[in-house]
């Protein structure tokens, strides 16, 4: 009895999960399964203009629905993925691409992290060199009190 009840509950839950998922993506009359996969793959790489952190595939915003329909129409017209991306970029700028292209406007975005890494490496290098100079006169293995200008082991300098 209990088991049967549990089964019913589980099935009901699963059914609901299916419903909530289906709401975001309405069924479209795809020509074949390959086209459906291509559509899903493409819309997952595109960003909804209305809701910054959602892909066109996931978003339930009206504009995302319209753009999904438009992408579907363009696919039926035989447009390639690149052509569809260009179509959207011409209207909504690079913003719609989750993978931003490399160009002067995005140099900071692409190389900024490297710049910060280099700056960090520079600081570390300078610190090590300084430490090496200071430490060369003394034996670091001896059990002495740490000097004031040396980083302490307990890390309370940082």
């Amino acid at each position: 009895m209990m088991r049967a009840l549990l089964h019913v509950l589980l099935v009901a839950l699963l059914a609901f999960a299916g419903v909530t998922h289906a709401q975001a993506i309405e069924p479209m009359p795809f020509a074949d399964h390959a086209q459906e996969l291509r559509f899903q793959h493409l819309t997952q790489q595109l960003r909804c203009p209305m809701c910054q952190n959602e892909t066109l595939a996931d978003s339930n915003a009206p504009i995302a629905r319209d753009l999904r329909n438009q992408i579907f129409q363009l696919m039926q017209q035989g447009k390639s993925d690149d052509e569809i991306k260009r179509y959207l970029v011409a209207r909504y700028s690079d913003y719609v691409l989750y993978d931003p292209p490399l160009k002067p406007g995005t140099w900071l975005l692409w190389f900024g992290p490297l710049l910060i890494l280099c700056a960090g490496a520079g600081v570390v290098l300078v610190a090590i060199r300084k430490r090496g100079r200071d430490g060369s006169a003394t034996d670091t293995t001896s059990d002495r009190m740490p000097l004031d200008n040396e980083p302490a082991d307990n890390g309370d300098d940082w």
Binding site: P49, M50, P62, I63, D66, L67, Q70, R91, Y92, S93
Partner: peptide
């Protein structure tokens, strides 16, 4: 239908 608005890059 909001189709022309896509050409204008309208999203809201």
């Amino acid at each position: 239908p909001g189709n022309t608005a896509i050409d204008f890059g309208v999203y809201g």
